[in-house]
Every structure is written in C-alpha cells, then in structure tokens.
Design a protein around this nucleic acid. Structure first.
Lengths: 340, 340
DNA sequence: TATTATTTTGTTATCGGTAACAATAAAATA
DNA sequence: TATTTTATTGTTACCGATAACAAAATAATA
C-alpha cells in the first residue's frame, strides 16, 4: 500500500508536507505542491481513512437501520438517504432488523464498533430503548425515521399519522362506510399508537362509535392474515365490517390475499385501503387506494438532519419534522353494498 | 472514548493483556480474564475498528454497487447480499450508480479510500473497465453480479440469459406469435448482448427470420418509451409486431404505460412480457408475464463468493455461477389476434 | 532448595495519518 | 549587510490496537 511516506521519499519532502498537500493547506509553496501532486498521481496514492479516523475521530460512515429493504416504503427511504449521504461525502451502511429488537441491538453494537458517525433509525419498538440509550451514552447522533421512542428524545422525521389516518378514514366514511376495521401494527410503535388514536377520533367525529371487534393489532411484516380476516368476515350478518383500513402496505396486500382466498370481492364486498403504496412501480396496474407517504423525502431529509447533527450544525433542541402524505384513490375502495 | 488503556489501568494489567482478553487468546490465566472482562463490562468498552484495521489491514466493510435500489430486482439482490454479509460479520455499504459510469467511478474511488475489503458490482458498461482495473491493481476482490466486463475477469454470478430469453421467446412463439419485438438495454452490457443473441437464435430455430425493425436498443432506466412504442405500432399493417419482449422490468412497465397511452389493449392487441418482476409484492394483483430471476440468491451467493475471496478461501481460478430463472405466466400474454 | 521448563504478563515498535511545536528558508526592514 | 518578519518545511508525539520479542511468575524437575 502506498503511504504518505512513500510519496514523501519520492518527492524529497517530509511526510507532513505531503499531508498538507493532501489537505489543501494554504501554507504550501506552489512549486512543492505541484511536485508532490505529481508523485501522488504517479504512485496512484489513496489516503487511508482508518489512519485518519484515528486522530480525527470521524469515519464519514453513517448507518440506515430499517426493518426490511424489501418493503417498497423503506426502499425509497433508503434511496433518499443514500442520495443525500453521497452528496455530503458520507457512506451509507445498510441494516435490516426485520422488526426484531434483538437483531436491532446486535446491529447497533456492531455499528458502534465500526465507528459510524451517526445512525438513521427506524426503531422496532419500546424494546429499542435500551440500545438507543447506548448511542446517547456514546454521543453518537441519530435520527428517528417513521417512528420514535418517546422515552429517548432525538431528532425525528415521520409522516403525519394523524392527518393521514383521518384522510383514509374520512374517504371511507364519505363513501358510506360505517363499519370500518383497522388492522394495525404492534402498539409498541409510536406511529401505530398515533394511527389508532386518529382512527378513533375520526370515527367519533363522524358520530360512529369505535367497535373493539374492529380494532386489530398484528405486525408490519409479510405474513398470513388468513385467520384475522376470516374472523372479521365471519361476524354476525350486519356486524361484518364493509371496509378495512390497513396500517401499512404489507398488511394491505396480505389482507387482499386473504380476502381472495375467502372469495370475497374487493371493493364490492369489502373496501380495502392502506398506508404506503405496495408498488415500487405503481403505474402499470394500479389497484389499491392508498395514502402515500413521502418515503424518499423522509430518507433524504432525515439524512440531512443527521449529518447536521454530526457536524454540530444543528440547534441543541431536538427537531421534529412531520411530512404530509397524499391520498391516491384507486379501485380497491367503493361504496358499501346495499343491505350492509 | 474508552480504550484498552483505560481498561488496563482499572484492571491493573497491561494494555496487551486486555488486547489478549478481547481476542480470546488462550494464554491468559482464567482469573485475570474474568477480572478484565468485568472491567470491560463495567466501562462499556467497545473496540475501535479503525485502530485495528491499521494493523490488520481489513475493515470488514464490503460494498454493493448497483444501478438503483428502487428497482425491485436490485432491492432483492441487496437484501440477499446484506443477509449474507451480516451472517459473516461484515457491514454492507450501499451505492447507486444510476447506470452512470462516472458516478460508478466516483464510488469506486470513495470505496477504495474507505478501505472496503471487497465489492459486489453491477457494472454499468464497457466504460466501467477502467475503474474496475483500479480494484484489480489494489488487490481488492470483487464479484460481478448480473453482468460482467469480459476484458477484466473476475468471479461472477448472474441469471441464465440464454435459457431465460429462450423461455420467454418460446412462450410467445408457442402462443402463435411470429412478429416479436425485443426492446433491449444498451449493448455495452454483457447481459444485453447475451439476450440479443439468444433471442435471434430462438427465432431462427423456429424458422423465423429476425427483423431488424423489431430489435430495439434503449436503456434499463425508468423512462418514457412513448416514441419507441409509437414507432413500432405505426408499422405498416401486417408488419406491426404482435408481441413485445422487454429486457427488464422497467422497460416492461414503461412499455405497458406507452401502450395504454396509445390505447392499445394488452394482451389482445399486443402481448407483453419481460425479465424480472416489477413487483416487490406481486401476489395481490398480478398481471405481467415475466421471467423471474433469483435476485435474492444472486445477492446472497454473490456475497458468499466475495467473502470467500476476501478470506482467500477461494480457488485461484475465477468462478462463474449462472442461475436459472422461472417463467411466470400471467395475463399480459395471449394469442395474437386474427388477421395478424 | 536450586535449576529448568512452562505459563503468563509486560515492553517496544509499528500501522498511516495529523496536531503542535521547532526549525529553516525567503522576504522585508533597518 | 545585519536583523527581523514572514513563509515554508520538518520533528516529535500521539491516536488505539497488535505483533514480536522480553521478562516475570509459576510449576516441574533434579
């Protein structure tokens, strides 16, 4: 490996002078700079970041810890985060937690050891608090994306869960639905709690009393919702919900799949809508009515917040950015059938 | 930051002893090991990888350089690569090139400086040769994924372009199509050349002479194919193709979009099929007939090849893995209409 | 118990850079 | 020309860990 010592010898200067040239120090004579630069090019020298980090204390590595890159929502978050990181000269390390706090904890440990300058984190629940505190203790900046751990304050960027839930619920109500089920994620997630609350409030504002049988808690992963859906549709005639609001794209798709198995037509017999588009490339065969959250922007802006913190260009107080989402009405929602 | 020196002082041993404990050296007395481990836990010590890398010459960082994580094909590659990397104790750095050789070159430079131990690369064309050679020069192992640069040999993992193209083409021929257009990527990509060749051969084997007007070269990015498709369908009556084979998912989707704009029905007036499923979650509203390449496996196995090379557990000769794909027949392909 | 062998621990130098200070060369001033 | 400033360059020590060798502590043997 070519080092500054090799360059120094060949250019007949001291290593320190080479270091100064590399770092564009202004107190270098033009002639020596040219001489050194020539040798650098000649030997194809690339500075060793490990050695630099040892004194500078920064690695220019940041991590993005998300549940699953396969979820199109997080794919877009990742792309946004990567674009901003590249722009500011940082490298992005990717980690999938699968909503598993243990895996998340393992990751955080590895990342601290790898010396990342900061972390963009989608926490997997209350259980994340303990390892997030480790980041605080080590003074490693981090930014919450999509969800937060209220006990451990930090900058955050997320969708407007209240506005979005209201929008989707009101869309269904406006179509005439009054028996609406909410299939939500685990209540250990802050965004889940907000969606739950907004859902209840919106119903009540419309004079509909929330029905506990319609409030279902599951998780945000790819999975089989057969039982849950079967139970819902097997409710007494007149009790069966006419619409389902899925709290994320995986739940939305799994709901459709379960309904198909049960041979229940969408939207005729059951309207379905969800948070986040399940499609990366939605425009060729759009079907689901969704509330599309600005995933790319969340990643992009989140990375910006993070790097500002890293470079201490951020105010002391934690910042909270909430982005609105867009309701996209397609064909999975319609009026309820007569008799319901 | 807590260092081995802090641990050493507190445990009344030398730093070297601490180092030995951390590295599980067998020549440490049980009692001192326990004593040191206690202090390590007490002070919440995490070893500094930068310092380690300085002597060990390895960072346990690997990079995945792909065109665009937003393409579901590469999303799956990424997930596979990350899973394997984690399993073997490596961190994955993600880079999007957007099929742009300059951006790719910039990345490779940054990655070399970051000291990655290896690179999983989807090269963006012949122009990649120059920066790939830099990796060779620096002795940084890399593995080609999906495509290769034949001038610069290295391990590779890709789909079976011949078998897959044959499958798709034969599927169309079996349906009765004889006028089939191939909308391919840029011929600077090895997989594009293979698909082109396999397409011609399959046609000829069926006694169909490839029509130059049906062989179109574009690129693999999200884009508007309006003009290209308009030109195709405006061909003389009896000359217009009845089927389109798109060489990747983006082209497939863009083709559908352009056909819809032109109000041409799929599959009645035009059958459409493509490489790679455009859907991350395809099972809720499947439409496109596709040849699904095992993207996850490509990432997973590719990472395995790479890390074997890094740890010099690989044979000297370059290895080439070719994976078969699966034909998924859905509703975007059908028999050609009468009169064609 | 003295001596040798074996365990276990400590010292020193090094990895490739850079900060802090020292020294030299060139330019400005007396 | 001698002296002071200023512009450049060089030296030394250190970042945190580890390899290579040295030394001390303990156990085994005579």
């Amino acid at each position: 490996m070519v080092t500054i010592y090799d360059i120094a010898k060949r250019a007949n200067v001291s290593p320190m002078t080479v270091s100064r040239v590399i770092n564009k120090s202004p107190l270098i004579k033009e002639s020596t700079r040219l001489k050194v630069e020539a040798v650098i090019r000649e030997l194809d020298y690339v500075p060793n970041k490990q050695a630099r980090s040892l004194t500078s204390k920064e690695t220019r590595l940041v991590a993005l810890v998300i549940p699953d890159i396969s979820n199109p929502f997080f794919t877009n978050v990742a792309r946004g985060a990567e674009d901003k990181a590249l722009q500011l000269g940082y490298h992005l390390i990717l980690g999938n937690t699968d909503e598993n706090p243990d895996k998340e904890s393992q990751y955080i440990n590895m990342l601290m050891s790898a010396g990342v300058d900061g972390v963009l984190l989608v926490p997997s629940g209350e259980a994340s608090a303990s390892h997030v505190k480790k980041l605080v203790k080590r003074n490693i900046p981090f930014v919450y994306v999509d969800r937060t751990i209220p006990q451990v304050p930090a900058d955050s960027i997320s969708g407007d869960n209240f506005q979005t839930t209201r929008q989707l619920t009101q869309h269904l109500i406006a179509l005439g639905h009054r028996k609406i089920a909410l299939i939500n994620g685990p209540s250990s997630l802050s965004n889940v709690r907000e969606r739950d609350q907004a859902f209840r409030e919106t119903l009540q504002l419309a004079g509909i009393e929330p029905n506990p049988a319609y409030m279902i808690e599951t998780h945000f992963k790819q999975d089989n919702l057969g039982e849950i859906i079967a139970k819902l549709v097997s409710l007494q005639q007149g009790e069966r919900p006419t619409a389902i609001l899925a709290a994320n794209n995986f739940i939305g798709v799994n709901t459709l799949r379960a309904l198909r198995t049960l041979q229940i037509r969408v939207p005729e017999e059951m309207a379905v809508t969800c948070f986040d588009d399940p499609d990366m490339i939605p425009d060729y065969n759009p079907f689901l009515t969704v509330a599309k959250q600005p995933a790319y922007d969340m990643g992009f802006l989140g990375m910006q917040l993070l790097i500002e913190r890293i470079q201490s260009g951020a105010p002391a107080a934690t910042r909270k950015i909430v982005l609105p989402s867009e309701l996209i009405i397609r064909s999975s929602t319609g009026k309820p059938q007569d008799g319901n």
